[in-house]
């Protein structure tokens, strides 16, 4: 989903009455004493003169699995790109393990949406994974690199895929390989941008099981952008709901089913052009 893509049609107004935005709603937050892997501090992003994000602030502790939710056009992909260092915030900052976003690339693993890469490229799973390990495409893979790639694929249940060409993989297998690619550098944070979009039901179910294992880990933090309630229920330790601004941040059961969140989000749509100007 592109941040500047046309916004999806609105839900019927009669279900949720408009509610004024009075600031982010903080439910149960992480313990202050925990090590912070990602800190988003009043991040605002403007693209092509259009305000996409306004003062989004939250943080992710070590090992926490966060689902980033919000309607289409809410700025989720823009936020991920800012975390990856592909977009500079107009104001505010994102820090990963204390370093500015984009300068700690080995600390961040990234699983893109399935549709965004060339699936007809003549490459094997091994080459793709080792490319992220080296930072360049491998001409030859050393035995130690192969062993490391194999171990990472084993971790995501895809060991048998190691020498398979990417072109022959199913949607679920492809995403396993991309997850192994993201994990090969032992990152502190893995970013998953709707990884199961376009994947068949079986592949989606299997992939969610792997994400649930990551969620159970105390070492690896994750941000999963998803519209899938099953994914939130299965994996999320915390949910961040944005719609241009931070709407709510808390535990999954606190946010799921909150009518007021939808009300705030749709109310925000009505006032999309009334976001305050940048603060100098």
């Amino acid at each position: 989903m592109s941040a500047d893509a046309p916004r999806a049609s609105r839900a019927p107004r009669s279900i949720v009455p408009p509610v004024e935005y009075t600031g982010p709603r903080h439910f149960t937050l992480p313990d202050d004493g925990m090590q912070r892997v990602l800190v988003s501090d009043k991040v605002s992003v403007e693209l092509g003169g259009k305000r996409i994000l306004h003062e989004v602030s939250f943080w992710i502790p070590k090992g926490e699995f966060v689902c980033l939710c919000g309607p289409n056009g809410a700025g989720k992909s823009t936020f991920l790109k800012t975390v990856l260092g592909m977009i500079e915030p107009t104001s505010g900052s994102i820090q990963i393990l204390g370093q500015r976003a984009g300068t700690a690339n080995k600390a961040v693993g990234y699983v893109p949406q399935r549709k965004t890469f060339d699936q007809d490229f003549p490459a094997t799973a091994l080459e793709l994974i080792v490319a992220n390990l080296r930072g360049t495409w491998p001409l030859r893979v050393r035995p130690d690199e192969r062993e490391r790639a194999r171990a990472t694929l084993r971790r995501v249940g895809g060991e048998k895929l190691i020498d398979k060409p990417l072109a022959g993989l199913s949607g679920g297998e492809t995403q396993r390989v991309f997850l192994a690619r993201a994990l090969i550098n032992d990152p502190a944070l893995v970013i998953l941008d709707e990884p199961t979009a376009g994947v068949d039901v079986k592949g989606r179910h299997e992939f969610l099981e792997i994400l649930a294992e990551i969620s159970a880990s105390d070492e690896l933090a994750a941000i999963l952008v998803t519209h899938n309630p099953a994914a939130i229920a299965r994996c999320a330790e915390r949910v961040v709901y944005i719609d241009g601004r931070l709407i709510a941040w808390g535990l999954p059961h606190e946010l799921l089913g909150q009518e007021s969140l939808s009300a705030i989000a749709f109310s925000m749509k009505d006032h999309a052009n009334n976001l305050p100007p940048d603060e100098d």
Partner: peptide, 20 residues
């Protein structure tokens, strides 16, 4: 430039994230 060119050909976004 072969190894960088190959990576950028596969996916410019991922290559850029690897510092290419």
């Amino acid at each position: 430039t072969w190894t960088r060119l190959a990576y950028a050909t596969f996916d410019p976004e991922l290559a850029r994230l690897s510092g290419i």
